[in-house]
């Protein structure tokens, strides 16, 4: 997107898309971070702010879609430009989904904070969120610089996010078996953890889109599936 065109307003169009994506990305990063903090600190005010913030992302996605379609209609872009524009549409959709998932976490804050929860329940969620936010930041930074050399780590980190989610799944299951009173909170936390894991998946999607937009080829190698939670069963005690 750095190469310039003869028509200056074409460059402005492409810059507009990139700028809006970055703003949406920053907004989504903040929403996810805030939703986790609201969850851990049981901060319902912050949770409500996150829920309200989601509207900005919906609006952003609409704006990007509209503008992208206009650009395609007016300029009939080719090669890298076309990839960048299609990429913008896809990335905006992924970011919008990330916002939805953050909002969903915020919505569960009320239910989780009905009873005082022990700190240990949240530590795993916090660690998972930290890893996922690092992933999201790295991916959006790659988008900013249009560089693909750091994207190699993305796959590896996605695998770690999945493995961590599986482990968290087991842990929460254990707490539920220990004491049925934990079931409400733990079920909500399980969904929160799943949402965070999904955010990681969307970040990986964005990485793939950036890779394609920049290089014109698909990101190599199939993504290995590391979420083993489908295999996890509540084992009887002592096994």
């Amino acid at each position: 997107m750095q190469a310039s065109h003869i028509v200056r307003s074409y460059d402005d169009d492409l810059k507009f898309l990139a700028n809006r994506i970055a703003a949406m990305g920053g907004h989504a990063e903040r929403m996810v971070d805030d939703s986790i903090r609201a969850l851990v600190n049981m901060d319902q005010v912050l949770a409500r702010k996150v829920i309200a913030d989601d509207a900005v992302l919906d609006e952003g996605q609409r704006e990007i879609d509209e503008r992208a379609i206009l650009i395609i209609a007016r300029r009939q872009p080719l090669a890298g430009d076309l990839r960048a524009i299609i990429g913008a549409i896809r990335i905006a959709a992924d970011i919008e989904r990330i916002g939805d998932l953050g909002k969903n976490i915020a919505k569960r804050v009320v239910a989780v904070s009905e009873t005082r929860q022990p700190l240990r329940l949240f530590r795993g969620i916090e660690a998972l969120a930290e890893l996922t936010l690092t992933q999201l930041k790295d991916v959006l930074d790659s988008f900013a610089t249009q560089s693909v050399d750091r994207l190699g780590l993305v796959r590896d980190r996605d695998a770690r996010i999945d493995a961590m989610f599986t482990s968290l799944f087991r842990e929460l299951l254990t707490y539920m078996m220990e004491d049925p009173r934990n079931i409400t909170a733990c079920t909500h936390l399980l969904f929160c953890a799943k949402n965070i894991e999904r955010i990681g998946d969307h970040a990986t999607n964005i990485a793939e889109t950036v890779f394609y937009a920049v290089t014109g080829t698909l990101m190599p190698a199939e993504r290995p599936k590391h979420d083993k939670s489908p295999d996890v069963v509540a084992a009887p005690k002592g096994s």
């Binding site: 970055a22 703003a23 920053g26 907004h27 900013a144």
Partner: peptide, 15 residues
Amino acid sequence: LLEPGTLLSLRFRSP
């Protein structure tokens, strides 16, 4: 990642 030409608005994304 701050090479000349990088758009700062893409790099510093906080609201």
